[in-house]
Design a protein around this nucleic acid. Structure first.
Lengths: 203, 203, 203, 203
DNA sequence: GATTAAACGAGACGGTACGTCCAGTCTTCAG
DNA sequence: CTGAAGACTGGACGTACCGTCTCGTTTAATC
């Protein structure tokens, strides 16, 4: 679907290891010293690269950072606990890097910058967000098959509830992203919205 | 409870009209030409002020802009349609400046900059956000009294749902804030969460 | 010649001690921390005065500093050693504050700022420079009367030689003003220019 | 004696033409509109450069202006009229830009700012002032060889007389620098100090 | 092995906004 | 009207960062 070009362009090929070095440098700066410290000069310097090498790979700082986050954000998680609530809590724990120190710091920095968050969403979607979304949809479908929930018509909107609330409460209420805060949103908002009807079927 | 000091501080007092001039200048630039046009120099120039007067009042550009938004954000709206849904749609229309061109442009610019949004929340909360929150709580209480809804235990979280989803979908999905998008969130998420228990009529 | 007004102007009279306080504050800042530290705010603060009181008395910072120097610069020195060379060395020692620590520092700071030097010359001339000039002329006349020198036609130019060379060598050659450097100029330039003819009269 | 480094420093080299552009821009502003018009922004703009490029080359405005003057100050003049007086008048005419409008304006502006004058002397001395000094010494030596003057022991001090008096009288007495004022200093002060001993003819 | 063309580290470049500083003026209230 | 205090306009300063550009050097694929 994305075959490499048959005739490789002449000249020196890109140094593939450099991509990772740059992204790692960006993440380290982000985690160590906060978003303000992540300047393109600083990233280049830390990666032992020239700025041109950064801009050859990414069009802007935001896109670079988005990729950096993407690289360090888990994609394909296999979770099936038999309970939608447990599935959701666990998967969002992973998505928000709970328990991974560097990721946690970096993600939380990123949440504070919407342009970056947006670039991340834009760029990462094809490869990763769609996967995440599919993962979540599967969880809901399994739960519906188990009779645990009814399948809501507006699932796409419901799937936005957790990230939206996390983003909002992190930025607007300076509330850290923790297992508890995620669970609270799931319990209070998500699950009630898909709760199975009180008694059996009702046509 | 907060008696003004008996001895006014010496020296020339701040020019109170200048605060408003500066904030208005900032808003006009924001509405006319976008966030990029809002430089401290431009604001000062347009307000007929010196930059020092800006920095005497606000520590940074973000704080100034937050206050500018606050000044123009409606605080005390009297809405009571007899229907929670209509109340909510109407009040959020006002809060998001639907129908007010300048506000609309300015708010949407601000939604795109979380540092600004955050500063706004930080500084404005005591005076304005609390008022808004109280307004909303009253709406829910009236609806509960009418039997339209049950009063949820976690109302504070539910009150975040609209702003959180609006912010998220605006930034992450590049979705404009319109009456329809607000109504959709209310209908799909907020109202179901507070729906009256399944007693009583069902058509 | 300068009778006080018969009808004292109404309102609070000027605080005469304030003039001196301000000038002293200026000199102390100059001597302690250098010319850069002498801002109008700093002077006012140190003098316990308001800036308006400074500008009520002097039209500009330069004029204030000029007066400050003037106040601390000796005016009327009585020197008559019987030797022109000794007279000159001694009088310039006094004028340049050699031996007076504060004056020394302040004057040397002032030499580095020609606008200030100029303001000093302008403002102080009527009261002080003319006196100085007369003092010097008298010294030359006495020496001529003693037959020690001949009275040069261009004495006014010769009288500029010491201050000019001191200013130039201080600024351009970073050469401190000392007794020795003054004496050198006098011996090498001034005295030879007015040396008595080698033998007695020559018509 | 000062072999260039074998390995040129890495990275993009400084644009040598930019130095000249910046300096020229500074001089043009100085000559056209006076010292007040010479702001770093204005210089950068006129030179088509960014401010960073100015500050990469000079630590401060004063140093930049000093170099600007230096670039436009004549260095190597060939003058040998057979008369010391004529030599001196002519060479100082050149040094003070008499007859060159831009230079004249710029120099006179600079004379009024000793910090600038100082920076000029500091930075320019090695390359230019030493050359000037050598030129002047040669003139005196030729005159001495011709028997026109005796060679004074303290020539270095005498060489300061013209610039010192010019600087002093320009600043302190607001006296323009003209051919006549230079000639007067030479005739009244310099030449008498090196006059040949009273042997030989006297008309 | 020579050629080629692109990637590389380094860092200069234009542009632009920031936040600081200071001179000189103005405004308040107290004496 | 003078006093202290301090806010006011105006404008230059020097710093920082983005995204682009040029150096001289290195590296693989092609000739």
């Amino acid at each position: 679907m994305n075959a490499p070009p048959v005739t490789p362009s002449p000249g020196r090929p890109r140094d593939a290891t450099l991509d990772a070095n740059i992204l790692r440098a960006a993440m380290e700066l982000l985690g160590d010293s906060g978003l303000n410290a992540v300047t393109m000069d600083a990233v280049a310097h830390r990666a032992g690269a020239g700025k041109a090498s950064l801009y050859r790979r990414w069009r802007s700082k935001d896109e670079l950072l988005a990729d950096a986050l993407a690289l360090y954000s888990p994609v394909d998680v296999e979770i099936d606990t038999g309970s939608l609530r447990e599935d959701l809590v666990k998967v969002y724990e992973v998505y928000y890097g709970i328990g991974n120190h560097l990721m946690q710091a970096a993600i939380q920095e990123m949440l504070g910058n919407v342009r970056m968050h947006h670039a991340w969403t834009e760029k990462v979607a094809p490869q990763r967000l769609a996967v995440r979304r599919a993962t979540l949809v599967t969880m809901f479908e399994r739960a519906a098959a188990r009779g645990e929930i009814r399948m809501p018509a507006d699932l796409h909107l419901i799937l936005d509830v957790v990230p939206a609330l996390v983003l909002y409460r992190f930025n607007m209420r300076s509330q850290k992203v923790t297992r508890a805060s995620i669970a609270k949103v799931i319990d209070t908002l998500v699950l009630p919205l898909v709760a199975a009807p009180d008694t059996g079927e009702r046509p």
